[in-house]
Design a protein around this nucleic acid. Sequence first.
RNA 1: GGGUAGGUUGAGCAGGUGGUGAGCUCCGCUGACUGUAGAUCAGCCGUCUUCGACUGUGGGGGUUCGAUUCCCUCCCUGCCCA
Length: 357
Amino acid sequence: MSAISFTSRATPIGRARLGSLTTPHGVIETPQFMPVGTQATVKALSPGDLHAAGVQVILANTYHLSLRPGHERIARLGGLHRFMGWDGPILTDSGGFQVFSLAHLGKVDDDGVTFASHLDGSPQRLTPERAVEIQEALGSDIAMAFDQLVDATLPAAEIAIAMQRTHRWAERCIDAHTRVDQALFGIVQGGVEADLRRESVASISALPFDGIAIGGLSVGESKVQMKHTLEVVAEALADDPRVRYLMGVGSPPDFFIAVERGVDLFDCVLPTRVARTGQLWTSTGRLNLRNARFLDDPDPPDSDCRCEACRNHSRAYLAHLFRAEELLAYRLSSLHNVTYTQDLMRRIRQALDDGSY
RNA sequence: GGGUAGGUUGAGCAGGUGGUGAGCUCCGCUGACUGUAGAUCAGCCGUCUUCGACUGUGGGGGUUCGAUUCCCUCCCUGCCCA
């Protein structure tokens, strides 16, 4: 018996589908966006803020939490949900992304990866078995397979090596996984090479994963390449009923591209990261609240938004908070962008449902 | 009134004891960010016709081929003494 169940129905819009993912900590309506909470916090936001923004599921990170505060400690304190005070579903990334983003601190071999800790330089070993062990200790609802992500613009031969390694690691993750109350997703790699992507889908989808993730995108390739790759993967996965998760994407335009190609789940640091530097996503476009022109602007960031920042505050106030480096700037702007993203996904679901997409 | 230390591009500084002061940090302006080593990073930040040129070391005057530097004088600021 699986820890999760996913049901979905097709829509008239390309391969877009509407679905429902039931997890041990609640139901997720799809298409759905997960804010990133790497270190057991979506930066600047409390669980209450996340609920207010309409968030249904968040993402946390294996590598970062194993280093600090340590997954054993989190397990002793009752697991990640209790530790961070979030009672909704949690998906944990496996540390695969850190193989990519911290590549200069690590060395990859066929068995796994050795990092120099970015905190103190101490050697840290991550293998498929270790990544699963950590995620089981954290107690996330959905664990991710440990994969090797590489720059999509590398030569095909190099991408193929990382992809094949990812496939071998995927089997080891399945063998290592023991928690019946936790789902495990596999990750398709293969860069922007159609043949490699098809090969990867064949390998990963043949394994008994609870869901299929698409990795290795938004890492240097063009929009056209990303769109094409998604089409190749969607075609190859056409008869697979499992939930599909596009990792690390994205921006509002990306959501439409991916939803129309059958993606059900997204995560991305973008809404919260850009918020902390003053960029707000609104119904009329992007605003950079650090720009001088907002210092006297009495309007709310987005008059169509229901978030706390837009209900109670002006652009001028937020512009002031950013200049003064007041902490409230980061909370209000993050709250807004996460709310905006959630509202956008809800409108996408609504439009797919009532035919107005 | 006497003494002393100073006055450098919005702010704070560095440098320079006769041979081209546009260097730093703030502030400010703009941009980037896609499974977060990111409240981070990058560019710009005297003027202009911007791959360069010009101006600028408190004001004025002097010496000199040449002065931020030496001399005279004035102004301003801090501190000490009276």
